[in-house]
Computed example of a mutant assay.
Amino acid sequence: MIRRTALALGILALAASTAQAQTAWPSKPIRLLVPFAAGGTTDLIARVIAEPLGRELGQPVVVENRGGGGGSIGAAETARAAPDGYNLGMATVSTTATNPAINPKIPYNVATDFTPIINIAATPNVIAAYPKLPFQDYKGMLAAVKREPGKYSYASPGNGSITHLMMEMFKLGTQTFMVHVPYRGSGPALTDAVAGQVPLIFDNLPSALPFIKEKRLVALVVAAPQRVPALPDVPTFKEVGLEQVNRMAYYGLIGPKGMPKDVVDKVNAAVRKVVQDPAIRKRIEETGSIIMADTPEAFAKQMREELAVYKDVVAKQKLTMD
């Protein structure tokens, strides 16, 4: 009888210990995987929130970079990780919409392999031109590319990048034709655009804005909800009648599929609290980004919608990774 009682007590203690371990998340450092090299907007936002997020959760949040494949290598690693809350990843339009839309060999399924947690921030995109071109505003650019189809080319950070597919969307909406010149990232694309090697560039605003401010590039039109304060004279795509192109680049948090809802909700609440800090908000907004801080459900819906939009563009323009 004593043995049975001791055994029963032991089982109860083990069950209580297991339950306590399950509710004590996090009990060790959390990895935040950035699917791009250090230095870009995705990496910057991850590092801005990592330290205060760790303080909020009670465990360090350690940023790791795993670049390559347009973000697909790092995203695939997040998809394969254990869904225990200790493996989070940064999600972008490139990794969850444009790249999967154009590349049939992506090693993950956006709809089934991830747990959306929160869209932290969104960044405007901009079409900019070499300053010595015969046009210096959107109307002039549109007239020029309509008048001489194929004469003008544009640079993007790469085949399948968000701005590549956004320019294809622009071409659909305006019935124009420009030659795509893909680069291995924004840096080399901007270098050639500033040098006049390629007349136009479609890029994320944070990386292009310094060159625009220095008048080494001329901003023509931006994808943003309203005019960007730093570029008050530059219209949005909505203003010029292309609302479908008025899309921003998002930077969110995801985890592997099957993450516990209580952990997802805890991370979401912690990020929302972190971005309420004026100092954190200022650092993110200085990149040209807009704080979003939405719900897991809203972010999941946005990811589905963006993937559908870009799949449609790829189909209509008959785009491939070649």
Rank of each mutant, 00 (worst) to 15 (best):
V126R: 13
G58N: 09
P83C: 08
P188V: 04
A219W: 11
P260C: 07
G158I: 06
Q197E: 15
A155I: 02
K213W: 03
A298C: 00
V309H: 14
A6M: 14
Q244D: 11
Y138T: 07
D265K: 13
L231C: 10
V181E: 08
M167W: 15
G58D: 13
R227F: 14
R216W: 06
N119S: 11
I118S: 13
R216A: 04
V181P: 00
P107T: 12
G10E: 06
I290R: 15
Q20M: 10
A308T: 10
I73P: 00
F299T: 11
Q59L: 06
D277I: 03
A91F: 11
D113Q: 08
D43L: 02
T78G: 01
M141C: 08
P157R: 02
T5G: 02
L253M: 01
E77H: 04
E243P: 04
I291N: 13
N268T: 13
V61M: 05
V194E: 12
P104F: 04
A144R: 06
L165D: 08
Y152N: 04
F135Q: 07
N103L: 01
E64G: 03
P278T: 09
L200Y: 05
T112F: 06
M248Y: 04
K139A: 15
E56N: 01
L319T: 02
N159V: 15
Q20G: 03
L44D: 00
K146Y: 05
N119M: 12
R283C: 00
L88Y: 02
A298N: 10
K151A: 12
Q317Y: 07
P26W: 13
M90Y: 06
L231S: 11
L165N: 03
L9K: 01
R304S: 14
K213L: 15
Y152K: 02
I30L: 06
V34C: 05
K215T: 04
E297I: 01
A21H: 11
G252A: 04
L133N: 08
G69M: 06
N109P: 00
L242N: 01
V221A: 07
D294G: 09
V274L: 13
A6I: 10
P188N: 15
S17Y: 14
P52Y: 14
N125D: 14
P278F: 13
N99D: 02
P157D: 10
K273F: 07
K282Y: 10
I73M: 05
A21K: 14
A155F: 03
V181M: 08
Y250G: 02
A15F: 03
V62W: 00
A193M: 14
T176L: 09
E285F: 11
I127K: 13
L14D: 01
G54K: 07
V264Y: 11
F114E: 01
I162Q: 12
A208I: 04
G69E: 13
G40D: 13
T115G: 07
I118A: 08
P149K: 08
L200P: 09
A97Q: 07
Y138K: 03
S72P: 01
G185V: 05
A37N: 12
A129R: 05
A208Q: 03
Q20L: 15
V240Y: 00
